[in-house]
């Protein structure tokens, strides 16, 4: 079973490598943030697998905190820095 999990971790690392390309190349902000979200999901999966492989249940907690907080980045992106012309105007008026 551990071998299967190790292979899965390897596949997930491959996912991260492919996502890295999208983060580096873009071209749009949305592509990048989605790759960032993919990183978050994949990291949670890797942590869960590592928790089983290494038999350290504490990593389930780390994965839980990650899963919760990955929401924060995407919400901050969508509500605050999404390149939206009207939003920009409002921001400048407010400041």
């Amino acid at each position: 079973m551990t071998t299967l999990y190790l292979v899965l971790v390897g596949v997930l690392m491959g996912n991260i490598a492919v996502g890295l390309l999208r983060i580096l190349r873009g071209p749009t902000a949305a592509d990048r943030i989605q790759a960032g979200q993919l990183f978050g999901t994949v990291t949670v999966a890797i942590l869960l697998l590592l928790a089983i492989i290494l038999e350290k249940p504490i990593y389930f907690d780390v994965a839980l905190v990650f899963a919760l907080l990955s929401v924060l980045a995407v919400v901050a992106f969508v509500t605050r820095s999404w390149p939206h012309p009207d939003a920009k105007d409002q921001d400048e008026q407010r400041d």
């Binding site: 905190v65 980045a73 901050a76």
Partner: peptide, 12 residues
């Protein structure tokens, strides 16, 4: 989590 929100809000 926190730094991501902080940086995105700053960018905005």
């Amino acid at each position: 989590g926190l730094t991501g929100a902080l940086l995105f809000s700053t960018l905005g």
